[in-house]
Amino acid sequence: MSTAAALPPLPPERRSGMRPVERLCHATGALLVLSGLAHLVVFLVDGGPWDGPVSWRKPFTFGLSFGVTLIALTWVTSYLRVGARLRAVLLAVFAADCVVEVAGITLQAWRRVPSHLNTETPFDTAVAMMLALGGAVLVVVLSAFAAAAFRHRPGGPLGMALALRSGFAILIVALLSGAAMIARGTALSRTGHPQAAYHSTAPLKPLHGVSLHAVLVLPALAWLLSRTSWREATRQRVMYAAVGGYAAAVLGAGVWAAWSW
């Protein structure tokens, strides 16, 4: 059997409309985005601090970020050479986990207590543990998609393979920085320094935020370039420049985090 024949076929993109799991993920992502925007309105009406462990910022930013990421991941994984059933399962698990994460953070925001690193009561501990477990699930699912991107060359227009592989590689940085925040915060919280635990994660937040969305920004640029009349060589140079620029931004955020930590 030839190598090409052994590869999982590319999904028939847009040929017969979206699959049920894609419609589910898009609808779920849209609801999460709306939830985030609704909490921005709550902040504007209710006020309160923007920073800190207890603020309306958290349900706003997490709802928006998880919603956009879910929609983006549903789109970009259509270019991966991965079995349709496996992709559907991974996307469904990811969608459910996004809902759990945003729901836990939103619940604690309305209770006016911290969502992460909070072990004040058994209920708060259960929520914090649920969010930590959800983070572990996110790592597993996203790592599986990243492995698929590097195992077989993704399809799509010119530059999409570079965009996807670079985006997923940078996404791993986001996962590692998120894990580092949780690990450091948990260690400080368990030694009786809850306020220090919350503040200790601040230097890594820019790195986490910047690297999290590369898997959307770079593929979106590749798609937009495919709609232009530019020569292939020009589009390829633009993609390499974009990847280099994004990597430089991530590196800068990483240097700042290391300096501030």
Rank of each mutant, 00 (worst) to 15 (best):
P20T: 01
A169S: 13
W256T: 01
W110P: 04
D51F: 05
H208L: 00
R227I: 10
L218V: 08
F62H: 11
L171F: 05
M239F: 06
S2I: 00
A4T: 12
A95T: 04
S200R: 09
S143E: 01
S35W: 14
D124T: 00
C25H: 02
V215Q: 07
A128L: 08
T69P: 03
Q236D: 13
T69M: 14
M1E: 15
A163H: 04
K205M: 04
P53T: 03
R151C: 13
R235F: 05
P114R: 01
A103S: 14
F168R: 09
L64D: 04
A241N: 08
P206T: 03
P53H: 02
A126W: 03
S55F: 06
V76Q: 04
V140R: 00
V41S: 13
P206I: 01
T77S: 13
T201H: 04
F66I: 11
R57N: 10
L176Y: 03
F145V: 04
V45N: 02
S226V: 11
R85I: 10
P12R: 04
A258T: 03
G67Y: 10
A109R: 09
R190S: 14
W75T: 04
A84I: 03
L90R: 03
P122R: 01
R14E: 15
A249R: 03
P203H: 07
C98A: 14
S2R: 06
R23I: 08
G155T: 06
I182T: 09
A257I: 01
L162A: 15
R23W: 14
A174I: 07
R237A: 13
T228R: 04
L131R: 09
P122A: 10
T61Q: 08
M1Y: 03
L224G: 08
A214G: 15
A202G: 05
M130C: 13
H39P: 05
P194S: 14
P8F: 07
A196F: 09
T125G: 14
G52T: 02
T106W: 14
L176C: 05
A4G: 14
L224A: 15
M130T: 00
G29K: 00
R190N: 15
L224M: 09
H193Y: 13
T191I: 05
G252D: 06
R190G: 15
R85N: 08
A187D: 15
L107I: 07
H193K: 14
G254A: 10
